[in-house]
């Protein structure tokens, strides 16, 4: 028999710190139970970079990339803050079903606590939609790694992944049946995790371009087998430019899924992948130009 999870009260203990010649990294919980990992340069900080992660399997896939970028940012003089959203990752506190609003609030709170210096956001996949929402209140530069440009299309991809999983397991649910389960069960197992219907409903009607306000610069980062900019990314860039936003594209040749078959058929650590060096350098160069 499966036991129901007991309702527990989890409090945050003292923060942990590690130090190197270049930086000091501290992991601890804030008053809302969010786990924050703050990486601070030894030299005076030239600005703060807050990371807006994705969710579900996309969080697991991309978190290491964010860790490496935040440490590279600190080595280059920036303070970097990784935040585990409420209800996500290692954050504690009361159960929270994440929405774009709760994610945006978490990022906004972290920016608010970061002091007076200039701030930028580096957002990943779904984190891009939350970062765009942050810009309604704070006009800060944002770098978007493989952003979800069209929420409806993202939902379609999730549904397709569900159908493919059903087929692989010998079942045969249609896309409509998957959508039906969202309506009746309130959640569907997809992307390696339980994806709540409330989140899907919210994301389905979003468009990054429509959500984007403000005038601070935007960096669109794509990672693909070729450095040819995908039409959807180019459309996003020109759409942002039409809104008066200085938008650039950083195109990186590499594999988004960093732990599979990067070197032929062999695992190559992400730290030694050329794409990581290009990504980190490209983002840091852009941050130095954009953060004021």
């Amino acid at each position: 028999m499966t036991k129901p999870t007991r309702r527990l009260e989890v409090a945050g203990g003292p923060a942990a710190t590690r130090e190197t010649a270049e930086l000091v990294e501290t992991a601890g919980f804030d008053d809302s139970g969010r786990l924050l990992i703050r990486t601070v340069p030894r030299s005076p900080s030239i600005g703060t970079v807050v990371f807006a992660s994705s969710l579900f399997a996309e969080l697991q896939q991309n978190y290491r990339r964010e860790v490496l970028l935040s440490r590279a940012a600190a080595a280059a003089g920036f303070t970097a803050v990784r935040v585990h959203y409420r209800g996500v990752g290692n954050s504690i506190g009361p159960p929270v079903t994440p929405t774009l609003d709760t994610m945006a609030d978490d990022i906004t709170d972290v920016i608010g606590d970061s002091g007076d210096g200039p701030v930028a956001i580096v957002a990943t996949r779904l984190g891009a939609l939350a970062a765009a929402r942050v810009r309604r209140k704070l006009d800060v530069p944002i770098a978007l790694w493989e952003p979800v440009l069209d929420g409806g299309r993202w939902v379609e991809e999730v549904v397709k992944a569900c159908v493919a999983r059903e087929v692989a397991k010998g079942g045969g649910a249609t896309a409509d049946e998957i959508r039906g389960r969202w309506a009746t069960d309130g959640a569907v197992f997809a992307l390696g995790e339980v994806v709540p219907a409330v989140f899907v409903d919210e994301v389905a009607d979003t468009s990054l371009l429509d959500m984007m306000t403000g005038s601070a610069p935007v960096l669109l980062i794509q990672m693909a087998r070729s450095d040819r900019v995908r039409p959807a990314v180019e459309r996003a860039r020109s759409g942002l430019a039409d809104r008066g936003i200085d938008a650039e594209v950083l195109s990186i040749v590499g594999h988004q899924v960093w732990w599979l078959k990067v070197g032929g058929d062999q695992f190559v650590p992400i730290e030694r992948q050329e794409a990581t060096t290009v990504l980190n350098q490209g983002v840091l160069d852009w941050l130095k130009r954009s953060i004021t």
Binding site: R6, E9, A11, G13, T17, F29, N90, I92
Partner: peptide, 10 residues
Amino acid sequence: MTIVDRPVFV
């Protein structure tokens, strides 16, 4: 029951 989560860099 209260549990304390303590982060550590080992």
